[in-house]
Protein backbone atom coordinates (compact mmCIF):
# COMPACT_ATOMS: atom_id res chain seq x y z
CA UNK A 1 0.00 0.00 0.00
CA UNK A 2 2.84 2.33 0.90
CA UNK A 3 4.37 1.61 -2.46
CA UNK A 4 1.25 2.61 -4.36
CA UNK A 5 1.09 5.88 -2.40
CA UNK A 6 4.61 6.76 -3.43
CA UNK A 7 3.84 5.71 -6.97
CA UNK A 8 0.85 8.04 -7.07
CA UNK A 9 2.91 10.86 -5.60
CA UNK A 10 5.56 10.35 -8.24
CA UNK A 11 2.99 10.50 -11.00
CA UNK A 12 1.62 13.71 -9.58
CA UNK A 13 5.07 15.24 -9.98
CA UNK A 14 7.47 16.86 -7.54
CA UNK A 15 4.76 18.91 -5.84
CA UNK A 16 3.97 15.83 -3.79
CA UNK A 17 7.24 16.31 -1.89
CA UNK A 18 6.96 19.99 -1.00
CA UNK A 19 6.70 20.78 2.69
CA UNK A 20 3.16 20.43 3.94
CA UNK A 21 3.63 21.70 7.50
CA UNK A 22 6.12 23.87 9.38
CA UNK A 23 8.47 22.04 11.78
CA UNK A 24 7.81 24.23 14.85
CA UNK A 25 9.34 21.88 17.45
CA UNK A 26 12.54 21.63 15.40
CA UNK A 27 12.78 25.39 15.04
CA UNK A 28 12.23 25.93 18.74
CA UNK A 29 14.90 23.36 19.63
CA UNK A 30 17.40 25.05 17.35
CA UNK A 31 16.62 28.44 18.91
CA UNK A 32 17.09 27.08 22.46
CA UNK A 33 20.48 25.49 21.78
CA UNK A 34 21.65 28.59 19.96
CA UNK A 35 20.57 30.67 22.95
CA UNK A 36 22.58 28.48 25.35
CA UNK A 37 25.66 29.08 23.23
CA UNK A 38 25.05 32.83 23.17
CA UNK A 39 24.46 32.98 26.93
CA UNK A 40 27.68 31.16 27.77
CA UNK A 41 29.72 33.26 25.37
CA UNK A 42 28.08 36.48 26.56
CA UNK A 43 28.83 35.79 30.23
CA UNK A 44 32.45 35.16 29.33
CA UNK A 45 32.65 38.29 27.18
CA UNK A 46 31.12 40.50 29.91
CA UNK A 47 33.56 39.10 32.46
CA UNK A 48 36.57 39.78 30.28
CA UNK A 49 35.47 43.23 29.17
CA UNK A 50 34.60 44.20 32.74
CA UNK A 51 37.92 42.98 34.09
CA UNK A 52 39.95 44.69 31.40
CA UNK A 53 37.99 47.92 31.96
CA UNK A 54 38.57 47.73 35.73
CA UNK A 55 42.27 47.13 35.35
CA UNK A 56 42.73 49.59 32.50
CA UNK A 57 44.06 52.34 34.77
CA UNK A 58 47.04 50.14 35.66
CA UNK A 59 47.50 48.44 32.30
CA UNK A 60 47.28 51.54 30.10
CA UNK A 61 49.62 53.75 32.08
CA UNK A 62 52.27 51.45 33.53
CA UNK A 63 51.90 47.96 32.07
CA UNK A 64 55.65 47.26 32.04
CA UNK A 65 56.18 48.60 35.55
CA UNK A 66 53.21 46.53 36.70
CA UNK A 67 54.74 43.38 35.27
CA UNK A 68 58.08 44.17 36.89
CA UNK A 69 56.86 45.55 40.19
CA UNK A 70 56.42 43.76 43.48
CA UNK A 71 53.96 43.45 46.35
CA UNK A 72 53.45 46.80 48.13
CA UNK A 73 51.33 47.97 51.00
CA UNK A 74 49.84 50.93 49.12
CA UNK A 75 48.18 50.74 45.69
CA UNK A 76 49.62 54.04 44.45
CA UNK A 77 53.16 52.81 45.05
CA UNK A 78 55.32 53.23 41.90
CA UNK A 79 56.82 49.80 42.41
CA UNK A 80 53.51 47.95 42.79
CA UNK A 81 53.38 44.92 40.47
CA UNK A 82 53.06 41.20 39.93
CA UNK A 83 56.55 40.04 39.08
CA UNK A 84 56.83 37.83 42.17
CA UNK A 85 53.49 36.26 41.32
CA UNK A 86 54.49 35.77 37.70
CA UNK A 87 57.70 34.12 38.83
CA UNK A 88 55.78 31.77 41.12
CA UNK A 89 53.08 30.94 38.56
CA UNK A 90 55.52 30.40 35.70
CA UNK A 91 57.71 28.08 37.72
CA UNK A 92 54.70 26.26 39.09
CA UNK A 93 53.69 25.63 35.48
CA UNK A 94 57.16 24.43 34.55
CA UNK A 95 57.42 22.13 37.57
CA UNK A 96 53.95 20.73 36.94
CA UNK A 97 54.79 19.99 33.31
CA UNK A 98 58.19 18.53 34.09
CA UNK A 99 56.88 16.18 36.76
CA UNK A 100 53.26 15.40 35.87
CA UNK A 101 53.99 14.86 32.15
CA UNK A 102 56.46 11.96 32.38
CA UNK A 103 54.74 10.30 35.33
CA UNK A 104 51.28 10.72 33.80
CA UNK A 105 52.27 9.42 30.36
CA UNK A 106 54.15 6.53 31.90
CA UNK A 107 51.18 5.56 34.03
CA UNK A 108 48.81 5.87 31.06
CA UNK A 109 50.96 3.70 28.79
CA UNK A 110 51.33 1.14 31.53
CA UNK A 111 47.60 1.00 32.18
CA UNK A 112 46.70 0.77 28.51
CA UNK A 113 49.42 -1.46 27.13
CA UNK A 114 51.05 -3.41 29.92
CA UNK A 115 48.62 -3.88 32.81
CA UNK A 116 46.76 -7.16 32.60
CA UNK A 117 43.05 -6.50 32.33
CA UNK A 118 41.79 -7.64 35.69
CA UNK A 119 39.52 -6.47 38.44
CA UNK A 120 42.49 -4.66 40.01
CA UNK A 121 43.21 -2.65 36.89
CA UNK A 122 39.61 -1.53 36.63
CA UNK A 123 39.59 -0.55 40.31
CA UNK A 124 42.75 1.49 39.75
CA UNK A 125 41.18 3.23 36.76
CA UNK A 126 38.10 4.04 38.80
CA UNK A 127 40.27 5.46 41.57
CA UNK A 128 42.16 7.66 39.11
CA UNK A 129 38.91 8.97 37.68
CA UNK A 130 37.67 9.80 41.15
CA UNK A 131 40.95 11.45 42.09
CA UNK A 132 40.43 13.84 39.20
CA UNK A 133 37.32 15.07 40.98
CA UNK A 134 38.78 15.46 44.47
CA UNK A 135 38.59 19.12 45.66
CA UNK A 136 41.85 20.94 45.27
CA UNK A 137 41.97 21.90 48.95
CA UNK A 138 42.45 18.24 49.78
CA UNK A 139 45.49 18.15 47.52
CA UNK A 140 46.71 21.29 49.27
CA UNK A 141 46.54 19.44 52.55
CA UNK A 142 48.41 16.49 51.07
CA UNK A 143 51.05 18.88 49.74
CA UNK A 144 51.37 20.49 53.14
CA UNK A 145 52.08 17.17 54.85
CA UNK A 146 54.15 15.67 52.04
CA UNK A 147 56.28 18.53 50.74
CA UNK A 148 56.16 21.31 53.37
CA UNK A 149 56.13 19.84 56.83
CA UNK A 150 57.98 16.80 58.01
CA UNK A 151 54.79 15.03 59.03
CA UNK A 152 54.85 11.85 61.06
CA UNK A 153 52.99 9.73 58.53
CA UNK A 154 55.22 10.48 55.58
CA UNK A 155 58.29 10.42 57.79
CA UNK A 156 57.21 6.93 58.77
CA UNK A 157 56.86 6.00 55.09
CA UNK A 158 60.40 7.20 54.49
CA UNK A 159 59.33 10.32 52.60
CA UNK A 160 60.45 12.84 55.19
CA UNK A 161 63.35 13.89 52.96
CA UNK A 162 60.89 15.46 50.51
CA UNK A 163 60.20 18.38 52.84
CA UNK A 164 63.93 18.99 53.23
CA UNK A 165 64.48 18.85 49.49
CA UNK A 166 61.78 21.37 48.68
CA UNK A 167 62.79 23.83 51.37
CA UNK A 168 59.35 23.79 52.98
CA UNK A 169 57.10 26.65 51.91
CA UNK A 170 58.51 27.11 48.43
CA UNK A 171 57.68 27.26 44.74
CA UNK A 172 59.03 23.73 44.50
CA UNK A 173 56.50 22.46 47.06
CA UNK A 174 53.69 24.34 45.34
CA UNK A 175 54.64 23.02 41.90
CA UNK A 176 54.87 19.45 43.13
CA UNK A 177 51.57 19.73 45.01
CA UNK A 178 49.81 20.99 41.91
CA UNK A 179 51.52 18.30 39.84
CA UNK A 180 49.90 15.70 42.10
CA UNK A 181 46.63 17.60 41.70
CA UNK A 182 46.66 17.45 37.89
CA UNK A 183 48.26 14.01 37.59
CA UNK A 184 44.90 12.18 37.33
CA UNK A 185 43.83 14.55 34.53
CA UNK A 186 47.08 13.98 32.67
CA UNK A 187 46.75 10.21 33.08
CA UNK A 188 43.15 10.17 31.86
CA UNK A 189 43.79 12.32 28.77
CA UNK A 190 46.97 10.40 27.94
CA UNK A 191 45.09 7.11 28.35
CA UNK A 192 42.47 8.30 25.91
CA UNK A 193 45.16 9.34 23.44
CA UNK A 194 46.92 5.98 23.77
CA UNK A 195 43.65 4.11 23.37
CA UNK A 196 42.96 6.01 20.14
CA UNK A 197 46.06 4.56 18.44
CA UNK A 198 44.69 2.33 15.65
CA UNK A 199 45.08 -1.40 16.24
CA UNK A 200 46.41 -1.69 12.70
CA UNK A 201 49.49 0.34 13.61
CA UNK A 202 50.20 -1.73 16.69
CA UNK A 203 49.73 -5.01 14.84
CA UNK A 204 51.82 -3.72 11.94
CA UNK A 205 54.71 -3.03 14.29
CA UNK A 206 54.37 -6.34 16.12
CA UNK A 207 54.05 -8.17 12.81
CA UNK A 208 57.44 -6.81 11.75
CA UNK A 209 59.08 -8.15 14.87
CA UNK A 210 58.97 -5.09 17.09
CA UNK A 211 59.12 -5.69 20.81
CA UNK A 212 56.51 -4.10 23.01
CA UNK A 213 58.77 -1.24 24.04
CA UNK A 214 59.74 -0.59 20.40
CA UNK A 215 56.08 -0.58 19.48
CA UNK A 216 55.28 1.90 22.25
CA UNK A 217 58.19 4.14 21.28
CA UNK A 218 57.71 4.10 17.52
CA UNK A 219 53.92 3.88 17.18
CA UNK A 220 52.00 4.71 20.35
CA UNK A 221 53.93 7.72 21.60
CA UNK A 222 54.23 9.53 18.23
CA UNK A 223 50.60 8.88 17.37
CA UNK A 224 49.31 9.83 20.82
CA UNK A 225 51.63 12.84 21.16
CA UNK A 226 49.10 15.52 20.12
CA UNK A 227 46.49 14.26 22.57
CA UNK A 228 49.00 13.86 25.37
CA UNK A 229 50.42 17.33 24.81
CA UNK A 230 47.03 18.97 24.75
CA UNK A 231 46.07 17.21 27.95
CA UNK A 232 49.27 18.21 29.70
CA UNK A 233 49.06 21.86 28.71
CA UNK A 234 45.42 22.08 29.73
CA UNK A 235 46.36 20.53 33.06
CA UNK A 236 49.12 23.14 33.39
CA UNK A 237 46.62 25.93 32.77
CA UNK A 238 44.41 24.49 35.46
CA UNK A 239 47.32 24.29 37.90
CA UNK A 240 48.31 27.89 37.27
CA UNK A 241 44.81 29.09 38.11
CA UNK A 242 44.56 27.24 41.43
CA UNK A 243 44.65 29.31 44.63
CA UNK A 244 43.35 27.10 47.44
CA UNK A 245 46.12 24.50 47.52
CA UNK A 246 48.72 27.27 47.31
CA UNK A 247 47.35 28.89 50.47
CA UNK A 248 47.77 25.59 52.27
CA UNK A 249 51.32 24.97 51.08
CA UNK A 250 52.23 28.44 52.27
CA UNK A 251 52.08 30.95 49.45
CA UNK A 252 52.26 34.36 51.10
CA UNK A 253 50.98 37.76 50.14
CA UNK A 254 53.59 39.94 51.71
CA UNK A 255 56.96 40.00 53.36
CA UNK A 256 58.75 38.55 50.35
CA UNK A 257 62.35 39.54 50.64
CA UNK A 258 63.23 38.96 47.01
CA UNK A 259 61.94 39.70 43.55
CA UNK A 260 63.88 37.16 41.46
CA UNK A 261 64.16 37.27 37.68
CA UNK A 262 62.32 34.61 35.73
CA UNK A 263 65.38 32.43 35.11
CA UNK A 264 66.82 32.86 38.58
CA UNK A 265 66.36 29.34 39.92
CA UNK A 266 67.78 30.25 43.33
CA UNK A 267 64.33 31.47 44.31
CA UNK A 268 62.73 28.07 43.89
CA UNK A 269 63.35 26.87 47.42
CA UNK A 270 62.36 30.13 49.08
CA UNK A 271 59.17 31.78 50.26
CA UNK A 272 56.94 32.53 47.31
CA UNK A 273 53.67 33.84 46.00
CA UNK A 274 51.66 33.27 42.81
CA UNK A 275 49.22 35.24 40.64
CA UNK A 276 46.00 33.74 42.08
CA UNK A 277 47.23 34.49 45.61
CA UNK A 278 48.04 38.08 44.69
CA UNK A 279 44.59 38.48 43.16
CA UNK A 280 42.87 37.14 46.29
CA UNK A 281 45.01 39.39 48.50
CA UNK A 282 44.40 42.55 46.49
CA UNK A 283 40.67 41.95 46.22
CA UNK A 284 40.50 41.66 50.00
CA UNK A 285 42.56 44.84 50.40
CA UNK A 286 40.26 47.00 48.29
CA UNK A 287 38.14 48.06 51.29
CA UNK A 288 41.18 49.61 52.90
CA UNK A 289 42.66 50.98 49.69
CA UNK A 290 40.25 51.12 46.66
CA UNK A 291 43.20 51.33 44.27
CA UNK A 292 43.83 47.62 44.87
CA UNK A 293 40.59 46.79 43.00
CA UNK A 294 42.21 48.16 39.84
CA UNK A 295 45.42 46.30 40.60
CA UNK A 296 43.53 43.04 41.16
CA UNK A 297 41.72 43.41 37.83
CA UNK A 298 45.04 44.06 36.10
CA UNK A 299 46.54 40.96 37.74
CA UNK A 300 43.58 38.91 36.53
CA UNK A 301 44.26 40.12 32.99
CA UNK A 302 47.90 39.08 33.33
CA UNK A 303 46.85 35.62 34.55
CA UNK A 304 44.28 35.28 31.74
CA UNK A 305 46.86 36.20 29.12
CA UNK A 306 49.28 33.67 30.59
CA UNK A 307 46.70 30.89 30.49
CA UNK A 308 45.54 31.86 26.99
CA UNK A 309 49.12 31.80 25.76
CA UNK A 310 49.55 28.29 27.13
CA UNK A 311 46.32 27.08 25.57
CA UNK A 312 47.34 28.57 22.25
CA UNK A 313 50.66 26.77 22.48
CA UNK A 314 48.72 23.57 23.15
CA UNK A 315 46.60 24.06 20.05
CA UNK A 316 49.55 24.97 17.83
CA UNK A 317 51.56 21.99 19.03
CA UNK A 318 48.63 19.66 18.51
CA UNK A 319 48.06 20.90 14.97
CA UNK A 320 51.73 20.51 14.19
CA UNK A 321 51.85 16.92 15.44
CA UNK A 322 48.59 16.03 13.76
CA UNK A 323 49.91 17.29 10.46
CA UNK A 324 52.96 15.13 10.94
CA UNK A 325 50.80 12.11 11.58
CA UNK A 326 49.12 12.70 8.23
Amino acid sequence: MALTTIGTAARQGATAFTRQRRDFAGGLFKAVILLSLIVSLAVLAVLIVDTVADGWAQLSTRAWDFLNGSLRSRSIDDKLGVKQGLYGSLWIGIIVAASAFPVGVGAAVYLEEYAPKSRWSSIIELVIRNLAGVPSVVYGLLGLFLFVERSTIFGFLGLGWLADATGGRSVLSAGLTLAVLVLPIVIITAQEAVRAVPTGLKEGAYGLGATKSEMVRTQILPYAAPGILTGTLLAMSRAIGEAAPLILVGAISGGLTRNPDVWDTSGLREKFTALPIIIVEWVSERGRDPGFATAAAAAIVVLLVLVLLMNMTAILLRNRFEKKRG
Binding site: G200, L201, E203, A205, Y206, L208, T211, E214
Partner: peptide
Protein backbone atom coordinates in the same frame (compact mmCIF):
# COMPACT_ATOMS: atom_id res chain seq x y z
CA UNK B 1 59.05 -15.66 15.34
CA UNK B 2 57.52 -12.56 13.81
CA UNK B 3 60.84 -11.49 12.33
CA UNK B 4 60.93 -14.70 10.31
CA UNK B 5 57.25 -15.03 9.63
CA UNK B 6 55.95 -11.80 8.14
CA UNK B 7 52.35 -10.71 8.04
CA UNK B 8 50.17 -8.60 5.77
CA UNK B 9 46.88 -7.48 7.25
CA UNK B 10 43.34 -7.19 6.00
CA UNK B 11 43.26 -3.42 5.97
CA UNK B 12 46.38 -1.73 4.57
CA UNK B 13 48.09 -0.35 7.67
CA UNK B 14 51.10 1.72 6.62
CA UNK B 15 52.69 3.69 9.44
CA UNK B 16 52.05 7.45 9.25
CA UNK B 17 55.64 7.95 8.18
CA UNK B 18 57.50 8.26 4.92
CA UNK B 19 57.45 5.42 2.40
CA UNK B 20 61.13 4.86 3.08
CA UNK B 21 60.62 4.74 6.85
CA UNK B 22 57.81 2.22 6.47
CA UNK B 23 59.99 -0.26 4.61
CA UNK B 24 63.00 0.42 6.83
CA UNK B 25 61.01 -0.18 10.02
CA UNK B 26 61.39 -3.96 10.21
CA UNK B 27 65.10 -4.09 9.36
CA UNK B 28 65.73 -1.30 11.85
CA UNK B 29 64.02 -2.98 14.82
CA UNK B 30 65.67 -6.27 13.86
Amino acid sequence: VRRQIGMVFQKPNPFPKSIWANVAYGPRVA
